[in-house]
Simulated scan of single mutants.
Amino acid sequence: MFTALLEVVAIVGSGIVAGVFLAIAVSVLPALRALPADRYIDMHRRLGKGYHPIMPLTVNGGMFADLVLVFLAPVPARYLFAAAFVLMLGTQGVSHLANVPINKRIHAMDPAALTPDWDDPRPLWQNWHLLRTVLAVAALAVNAAGAALAAS
């Protein structure tokens, strides 16, 4: 029963992260890219407030459920949960090592003091975001496969 609960936590956690990141990639990012620099900075700040602390907690919840499942799930499924753990760890790593530092840089910018040749962080932020989106979607697929294998 505990293992089944952990499988649900892993799937729901990776599913929420994959869904939120995919929505950002296909809708929010194109809208942000279309904004003038000063409005982009303001909007980026506003959007970021809603993601903390819920997204890190969601990623960590799914990731740690995967880690425990590596030890508790039936042997063939353990390998899939181990892969999902690594994918979620990668998702978290990209967030903390790439996107968060860019976020801090954006938050330190003064929108009124931007020059026409400002260093636009959007392309780099988007590239890192797309990587973590792929990792999160892969984690969801692998978690679902692990749960299906564990149930068979």
Results as ranks from 00 to 15, higher is better:
residue 112 A to F: 05
residue 82 A to F: 13
residue 28 V to I: 14
residue 133 T to C: 05
residue 141 A to L: 14
residue 33 R to K: 14
residue 68 V to M: 09
residue 132 R to N: 03
residue 49 K to L: 15
residue 96 H to R: 10
residue 44 H to T: 00
residue 80 L to P: 08
residue 122 R to D: 04
residue 79 Y to A: 12
residue 14 S to T: 14
residue 48 G to F: 06
residue 27 S to E: 14
residue 44 H to R: 03
residue 16 I to H: 00
residue 110 D to P: 06
residue 95 S to M: 10
residue 103 N to Y: 00
residue 52 H to L: 15
residue 113 A to L: 10
residue 126 Q to F: 13
residue 17 V to E: 04
residue 38 D to Q: 15
residue 137 V to G: 04
residue 19 G to V: 04
residue 9 V to Q: 05
residue 63 M to P: 07
residue 27 S to R: 11
residue 48 G to H: 07
residue 42 D to N: 02
residue 130 L to E: 03
residue 61 G to C: 07
residue 104 K to C: 01
residue 60 N to I: 11
residue 14 S to Y: 01
residue 144 A to K: 07
residue 83 A to C: 12
residue 61 G to I: 01
residue 113 A to Y: 07
residue 3 T to V: 15
residue 105 R to S: 13
residue 128 W to N: 05
residue 10 A to T: 05
residue 46 R to V: 02
residue 84 A to T: 03
residue 136 A to Y: 04
residue 99 N to W: 05
residue 94 V to K: 03
residue 38 D to E: 15
residue 118 W to K: 02
residue 48 G to M: 01
residue 144 A to V: 15
residue 21 F to L: 10
residue 100 V to M: 06
residue 42 D to M: 07
residue 72 L to Y: 13
residue 56 P to T: 00
residue 54 I to S: 05
residue 57 L to I: 11
residue 36 P to L: 06
residue 44 H to C: 11
residue 18 A to M: 10
residue 115 T to I: 08
residue 149 L to C: 02
residue 32 L to D: 05
residue 84 A to R: 02
residue 52 H to R: 15
residue 59 V to K: 00
residue 3 T to R: 14
residue 143 N to D: 15
residue 7 E to A: 14
residue 126 Q to G: 04
residue 25 A to T: 14
residue 132 R to P: 10
residue 87 L to M: 01
residue 87 L to V: 08
residue 40 Y to A: 08
residue 103 N to P: 02
residue 2 F to H: 13
residue 18 A to H: 06
residue 103 N to M: 11
residue 134 V to I: 15
residue 148 A to T: 14
residue 137 V to C: 11
residue 63 M to D: 11
residue 11 I to T: 10
residue 39 R to V: 00
residue 88 M to S: 11
residue 25 A to F: 04
residue 135 L to H: 05
residue 69 L to W: 00
residue 109 M to P: 07
residue 5 L to N: 09
residue 66 D to G: 13
residue 144 A to E: 10
residue 128 W to I: 13
residue 95 S to F: 07
residue 59 V to Y: 06
residue 77 A to N: 02
residue 17 V to P: 01
residue 131 L to R: 06
residue 1 M to V: 14
residue 16 I to T: 09
residue 133 T to R: 07
residue 140 L to V: 03
residue 50 G to E: 11
residue 27 S to V: 14
residue 141 A to F: 11
residue 120 D to P: 09
residue 37 A to L: 09
residue 20 V to I: 09
residue 39 R to E: 11
residue 31 A to T: 15
residue 107 H to R: 12
residue 91 T to E: 01
residue 89 L to R: 02
residue 54 I to R: 06
residue 107 H to D: 15
residue 52 H to C: 02
residue 45 R to N: 13
residue 16 I to S: 03
residue 99 N to I: 09
residue 34 A to M: 07
residue 71 F to S: 09
residue 48 G to T: 10
residue 53 P to H: 11
residue 124 L to D: 13
residue 110 D to L: 08
residue 58 T to R: 01
residue 31 A to D: 14
residue 129 H to C: 05
residue 118 W to R: 11
residue 91 T to W: 00
residue 144 A to D: 05
residue 46 R to Y: 11
residue 1 M to K: 10
residue 67 L to P: 01
residue 147 A to L: 10
residue 119 D to F: 11
residue 60 N to T: 12
residue 50 G to C: 12
residue 49 K to Y: 03
residue 71 F to W: 08
residue 102 I to E: 06
residue 95 S to D: 02
residue 47 L to W: 00
residue 32 L to R: 09
